[in-house]
Design a binder for these strands. Structure first.
Lengths: 109, 109
DNA sequence: CTACTATATTCCAATATTGGAATATGTCAA
DNA sequence: TTGACATATTCCAATATTGGAATATAGTAG
């Protein structure tokens, strides 16, 4: 598997670039306990295979770590601190954009 | 345009989820000066329309800001501090993964 | 105006991502 | 062993993203 640096970084960013995967990461960040596939499927009201596949994508780039406990496969964030940095930065950008847009709407009134 | 919060965040992450766009952001972060489309096209040895389209994607989510100066459209990062946070966090994850993989390779020797 | 340069946009084919259903695998208990 | 449950994987159709060529637009100089 040959891959240059930007490709490797992009794989990580891409893994976060989906609403459900981002939501899963935020959820795991707040909950702080490993959660199993079924729990996440119920929580997000999604098909089990969909959740499983998204977790697999997150696992491939080591955003998430799998711990097998008997029947259950429990997932946690591998790097919670880094994920928090990213989510906070994204939130900051989104909030600033919302603020800017509301100002533009005001100007157009 | 109705969009829930995770959709909005995902749009920002998606904008970064491409090797060239990530490279453009890192470049603008280091250079600190606004750069025009042609400059970036030459620097990255890419088609002008490709660069223009990628910049447009970054601009749509306000990762990048356009300043028109005569003939030139110069682009800068709108939120350099946040972009640096994100890039640093991604680098940290990628480095840790590389380290882990090299250890796995060692184990297999 | 025309010519020239910079940039944006449109069009299109190739490729990638997605969700859901079905199926396969794995783990445990009886 | 069989059954029950948790999870992963495969398959497929719908959708999204991509790069490059061609075209359109914009700004400036002559």
């Amino acid at each position: 598997m040959k891959m240059d640096m930007f490709e490797a970084k992009t794989q990580v960013v891409k893994a976060l670039a989906h609403p459900l995967r981002l939501a899963i990461c935020e959820y795991l960040l707040n909950i702080k306990e490993p959660k199993c596939v079924n729990h996440l499927a119920n929580h997000f009201k999604k098909n089990q295979s969909v959740i499983s596949k998204h977790l697999s994508i997150l696992q491939q780039v080591n955003i998430v770590t799998l711990k097998k406990e008997g029947i259950y496969n429990r997932y946690t964030l591998s790097n919670p601190a880094q994920i928090r940095c990213i989510i906070d930065a994204i939130n900051s950008i989104v909030k600033e954009n919302a603020l800017k847009n509301s100002k533009i709407v005001e100007m157009m009134d």
